[in-house]
Design a protein around this nucleic acid. Structure first.
Length: 575
RNA sequence: CGGGGCGUAGCUCAGCUUGGUUAGAGCGUCUGCCUUGGGAGCAGAAGGUCGCAGGUUCGAAUCCUGUUGCUCCGACCA
């Protein structure tokens, strides 16, 4: 698909200033460059420039999905409540799902995702293992009534998303499909010119096997990831597993209770007792949906990873901060908690590294008192506690694969792949008849890419003070031809010739034929971020050459008239 | 859902504390002139029920109440 156009006809209202509400660079630039306009909170119109880029990203996605055997379908956005009730998610999804009723009072939802839709589609049509594996995908609007839409297209309520669903006869097949998608995703984001990492992710409530998030590295990103420079390990902060920290052996001293007036924080205790923070044990009290008290213990200088706690405590779905009463009921008080003497009603979970500490400081479960010389493996009741890796990774922790110090960075999650297993096929009774004559549910996988978010991430990662810097593959136009004075017929005619030649050569080219001053047009070009600008002026007319400016490097070059098309094509290959 | 901020022209904002002719500026838009290598200049013009509703007052953009929308922080987030 080739785009070409004259700027006088292009609807791209650029602004000198950006709206006050825009915070992220990408959001500001999309607004200023005339890419998007807001209709309401989290709801945006894509103007022609943005939509061209979106279409290019979607095309790249289509090519890579098709290359792996994916087939594109289109499914309803308006989805009947029945299938959501059948899967159990009508209740689970909560306020985030946009719901509506038709004139007969029947309930529907605007699809936040399409597992139910695709699974019910396939269950009625696929009966035999001979029809597997099957990979179907769709690119269309999804709806999530975000509590707090923000950052423009990064977190909106209506967004364009690609979702592919795989159906396999067994886990091996599912893993092959997963690997195919993992590879396809890597290619997609490479082709989009993004710097990204595929990070191990928690697939939480969805259950099942493995999951990777494809995260574009950007300081403004909402997710935090840990990665290793020595090996290829990368994981979201919530997922990153940690090894046990071995403490130096030392002579054990007997447990002792001491007074610590007003020392209700680790900082205060540490200073009052004059011990290093590594010798303290910190308690964090949570409760779950059933109002069970869950107390997590980590080293004083560590933080609790709530996701790991959730995964370690059977039956817990959500964690909330525990109230004082709940803590008091367990025979303790906030600021002075420890597993020693805590009532059995409390679920105690202790970080694996804490168990190796010796002669440490922990609360005494009464106001203004702590224990010293706590040695968990001796003093904690092993029968009543859960020991697990529950701490939050931080920069410098050893890589779980190779031991090198980990680095932390922030990123924008643009895609996620995960295996679903039988979760939906079982609930929705989507089965096939296998070779052995048995009825089995499909092994499924689900693979999403946020298209708008990918565009926003590309801008977030590629911009300078003047505006957007598009990678050629997803630029709305690859080349812009600018006659500095479009009122000069000679310049305009010459520019039009170059424009036509590039057009014929298959280049996405825009002719900026607006009768604006040169400065205005140059500013717009830089703001919108076309990879290459060709300038036509009295100077270039005289010399017979054309001047070319590369947006990313700011480099100027001169091409001989006869070589323009050839040289531009070559130059584009490098952008 | 809790806490803060904001809502005045297409955009960015001033005016509000201390109520008083016809509500302002810059940018943008339109017309004319001029200019054409980095948002230039001159002259003129259009454009606002001051978010909405109610109240106080002789009089409300300004004070009070309610409401709605946006926004930031927190909580939450397949």
């Amino acid at each position: 698909m080739i785009f070409f156009m004259k700027a006088t006809k292009l609807y791209a209202p650029t602004l000198r200033e950006s709206p006050a509400e825009a915070e992220l660079v990408s959001h500001k630039l999309m607004y200023r460059a005339g890419l998007i306009r807001k209709a309401a909170g989290g709801l945006y119109s894509y103007l022609p420039l943005a939509w061209r880029t979106m279409k290019k990203i979607m095309q790249i996605i289509r090519e890579e999905m098709d290359a792996k055997g994916g087939q594109e379908v289109m499914m309803p956005i308006v989805q009947p409540a029945e299938m959501w009730k059948e899967s159990g998610r009508w209740a689970v999804y909560g306020d985030e799902m946009m719901r509506l009723k038709d004139r007969h009072g029947r309930e529907f939802a605007l699809g936040p995702t399409h597992e139910e839709m695709i699974t019910t589609l396939v269950r009625d049509e696929v009966r035999s293992y001979k029809q597997l594996p099957l990979m179907l995908y769709q690119i269309q609007n999804k709806y999530r009534d975000e509590i707090r839409p923000r950052f423009g297209l990064m977190r909106s309520r209506e967004f364009v998303m690609k979702d592919l669903y795989s159906f396999d006869r067994d886990i091996d097949g599912m893993n092959i499909s997963y690997q195919k998608m993992y590879d396809a995703y890597s290619r997609i984001f490479e082709r989009c010119g993004l710097k990204f990492r595929a990070v191990e992710a928690d697939n939480g409530a969805i259950g099942g096997g493995h999951s990777h998030e494809f995260t574009v590295l950007a300081p403004s990103g909402e997710s935090s990831i840990a990665y290793c420079e020595k090996c290829d390990f990368a994981a979201s902060d919530e997922k990153a597993e940690l090894k046990i920290i071995h403490a130096e052996p030392e002579e054990l001293r007997p447990l002792e209770k001491v007074l610590t007036p007003d020392c209700h924080t680790i900082e205060l205790v540490k200073n009052f007792l004059n011990v290093p923070i590594e010798k303290t044990i910190k308690a964090v009290a949570f409760m779950d949906d059933d109002e069970r008290l869950i107390v997590a213990f980590v080293r004083g200088d560590h933080d609790v990873n709530e996701i790991k706690v959730l995964n370690a405590v059977e039956g817990a779905n959500h964690l909330y901060m525990a109230g004082e009463k709940l803590i008091a009921d367990a025979n303790s008080c906030a600021g002075f908690m420890s597993p020693i003497g805590l009532k059995d009603s409390a679920i105690v979970i202790v970080d694996q590294s804490v168990m190796l500490m010796s002669n440490a400081v922990a609360g005494a479960n009464e106001v203004d008192a702590h224990f010293i010389n706590v040695t968990p493996r001796r003093d904690f009741d092993a029968e009543k506690i859960i020991v697990a890796d529950i701490r939050m990774v931080r920069a410098g922790d050893p890589c779980p694969h190779c031991g090198a110090p980990l680095k932390m960075t922030r990123g924008i999650e643009v895609g996620q792949v995960f295996t679903l297993g039988k979760k939906y096929s079982e609930k929705l009774h989507a089965t096939f008849l296998d070779e052995d004559g048995k009825v089995k549910p499909f092994e499924m996988g689900c693979y999403g890419i946020g298209v708008g978010r990918t565009m926003a991430a590309a801008i977030e990662q590629n911009n300078d003070k003047d505006g957007i810097i598009w990678t050629r593959a997803i630029a709305p136009f690859e080349v812009v031809v600018v006659p500095v004075n479009a009122k000069d017929d000679k310049q305009l005619a010459f520019a039009e010739k170059i424009y036509n030649e590039l057009k014929s050569a298959g280049v996405d080219v825009l002719l900026d034929d607006r009768k604006e001053r040169a400065g205005v047009k140059f500013k717009d070009c830089d703001l919108i971020g076309y990879p290459i600008r060709i300038t036509i002026s009295p100077k270039t007319l005289e010399s017979g050459n054309v001047e070319v400016k590369v947006r990313r490097s700011g480099e100027f070059m001169n091409f001989a008239r006869a070589d323009v098309v050839k040289n531009i094509l070559e130059l584009l290959e490098t952008l």
